[in-house]
């Protein structure tokens, strides 16, 4: 890696590549990318976690590949090249999931395949990997993947907790049928939270809270 001589592997600008997408430049809540899958897989934390890992892997590795190829890709056909790289990586991820986490892969259904058209991927390939060296591209992919995963995990946490009274599949609030824990006081799971519309509202609320704290993100 030639650029490491001039600049440390974890120099300030490189660290920023990872930390920025977590808040100020979050792919979901600020750049508005990759929302399709973010909403659909957040019913349970486990699914959201598997999805996040898959997306992080695909973005980071894809970014490196595109960055290595950046001087050889004719700009007219770059979209197709990017799609082919993404599709090849997603096929790998899909086969690995089918082999080692079959239940989760069944629940994620078409959304694993849809990582190919996940806008974060195209966005990062276009905006970053085509212009930068492999190592910063890798960090950028990692950071954006983590930013995506962070929103996914937060939304999934609240949806699973409020919707089915569980965290990561463990019934932390007691048993709704046996009436133990908080259910003995008359608490009921909010079934609406599991349904599709609440995913949108949850992300809306996430954006509200984030922009309430981080005032510079407010749109005019």
């Amino acid at each position: 890696m030639s650029d490491t001589n001039k600049e440390g592997l974890f120099s300030k600008s490189n660290i920023k590549l990872i930390t920025n997408p977590l808040n100020d430049d979050n792919p979901i809540s600020v750049q508005v990318l990759g929302i399709c899958s973010a909403l659909a897989v957040t019913v349970q934390m486990k699914n959201a976690f598997v999805m996040s890992i898959s997306v992080i892997a695909v973005i980071a590795i894809g970014n490196v590949i595109i960055s290595l190829l950046r001087n050889y890709i004719p700009s007219r056909i770059r979209i197709i090249v990017q799609l082919v790289v993404a599709a090849a990586l997603v096929i790998l991820v899909d086969q690995i999931l089918k082999a080692y986490a079959y239940d989760v892969s069944k629940q994620l259904s078409v959304f694993v395949g849809l990582i190919i058209t996940n806008c974060i991927l195209m966005g990062r390939f276009e905006a970053f990997a085509l212009k930068n060296k492999p190592w910063p591209s890798f960090l950028d992919g990692l950071g954006n993947g983590l930013g995506y995963g962070f929103v996914l995990m937060v939304v999934a946490f609240f949806r699973e907790l409020l919707g089915s009274g569980k965290i990561w599949g463990y019934p932390v609030l007691g048993d709704p049928i046996e009436k133990t824990g908080v259910y003995s006081m008359g608490y009921i799971n909010n079934g609406l939270v599991i349904l599709a519309p609440m995913a949108l509202l949850m992300v809306g609320i996430f954006i509200w809270v984030q922009r309430g704290i981080n005032k510079k993100l407010i749109e005019k």
Binding site: P197, L200, L201, G204, I207, W208, Q210, R211, E219, K220
Partner: peptide, 22 residues
């Protein structure tokens, strides 16, 4: 509301429309 302007309110409106479509 200022923090909801733009993206936030769009999400919430989409959510309400989704409830309608249900």
């Amino acid at each position: 509301l200022a923090p909801l302007r733009g993206l936030g309110i769009t999400f919430i409106v989409t959510g309400l429309m989704a409830i309608g479509f249900m």
